[in-house]
Design a protein around this nucleic acid. Structure first.
Lengths: 212, 212
DNA sequence: CCATTATCGATAAAAAATTATCGATAATGG
DNA sequence: CCATTATCGATAATTTTTTATCGATAATGG
């Protein structure tokens, strides 16, 4: 275990495993097998076993994994155990909704504050979090050591905001804007792009109807 | 072109190309080359050329593609030209935000109505769209021929809602709930799972700090 | 009108991910 | 106590995706 370097695809499946393990399941069984998880999630069992091998070492033949241990190992690996601080730029509808969303702490994310260029929002509060003016961004990030930036501004301003975030020491950007961001090497951009999802949906329907 | 069957990865890049082409760029040049797009988006130029080859046939050596034609071809391929109707189940905060979001039509999605089991919401309106009780779901879907269902209910109810949607003739599900949905073959589930995104962000930071 | 150059499209090579196979291990039941 | 069985972990085969190479084409400049 502790392979430290798992593939992106594996990483995308891990939260699903955790979610399944946390779920009520069929009674609080002490052990779970990769086969069981695979069946429940509609995956190949070898995939699951391989994925779990990179985060856990508690798997035993005939028995499987100890559920509670596996959960802990997954949480640790996914960083859910120690929260990361984040700043959010763009306190519009979406931005405020994210600031108010109560589910992030359980995923190890803590939004410290929101930032917006609109002076009318300066000093406002959303769910107990302050909205500040953009000029306070670098100071806060540097002082507290924030490494995650969330972008919820209109697409045309996204790149400029992204540049500011990186100047402020941000290493990972969660981008909700419909824009492609250019960043220096070493910075991660995670796009939460609904256009992509819709493209996949639409394409599926097209395929269904073209073969029917 | 008209390969009909492009890879998922390709499909995920196409909206980015379209976004770039629509953007202001550097003046309204008539032609664009794959090399140009690749550079702007930080991709390999062969990838771009290969992707574009499956949606377009207007590429010419030394010249590139005709911008306006390529845009039209991408829009057609992505289904942005003729909107698909959709129903949304779970008219809570997120559900209402999606119902009110004005950007979907430009991506070829039209949310017809919202549904919720809470009787207090029955008959309410969000952005001109009605919220109806769950028992009206199958009727509307069948009558209008809706094929896309959006799930914005709490995770524990997601599977039940999903089953109802499929019973109502839905072929593609856009799932915002933190739950893994089991569906029969032929039905697509597109997960919009923030836990996955956060896992990728967190992992990146972990890698950065473990190698520093 | 011809050499040069930017670009496409196709084919080939390389890398990554998925899936299959197989021996090893440990619990279970006779 | 031993045969059986479920499961893991490792290795190998397959498939998919990405990247590289190369000839063909058409505009440009002399």
């Amino acid at each position: 275990m502790s392979d430290r370097c798992v593939s992106k695809q594996t990483l995308q499946r891990l939260p699903a495993y955790l979610n399944y393990l946390r779920g009520p399941g069929k009674g609080p069984k002490k052990h779970v097998s990769a086969t069981m998880i695979a069946e429940a999630l509609g995956l190949n069992d070898v995939v699951v076993r391989k994925d779990l091998a990179s985060v856990s070492s508690s798997g035993r033949p005939k028995v499987g994994y100890v559920r509670s241990e596996l959960i802990k190992e997954l949480e640790k690996f996914l960083g859910y155990d120690n929260s990361q601080d984040a700043v959010l730029v763009g306190a519009g509808k979406l931005g405020q909704a994210l600031m108010a969303y109560g589910g992030f702490p359980q995923y190890g994310l803590n939004i410290l504050a929101g930032f917006d260029s609109d002076p009318r929002l300066d000093g406002a509060e959303v769910a107990g979090k302050k909205i500040l003016s953009m000029d306070k961004l670098p100071g806060l990030c540097r002082r507290v050591g924030v490494h995650i930036g969330i972008i919820t501004v209109p697409g045309e301003h996204a790149q400029a905001v992204c540049d500011q975030l990186i100047d402020s020491g941000i290493l990972a950007v969660w981008n909700f804007a419909n824009a492609h961001l250019l960043v220096p090497e070493g910075i991660l951009v995670q796009n939460e792009n609904m256009a992509v999802s819709l493209a996949l949906l639409s394409n599926h329907l097209k395929e269904v109807f073209s073969t029917k």
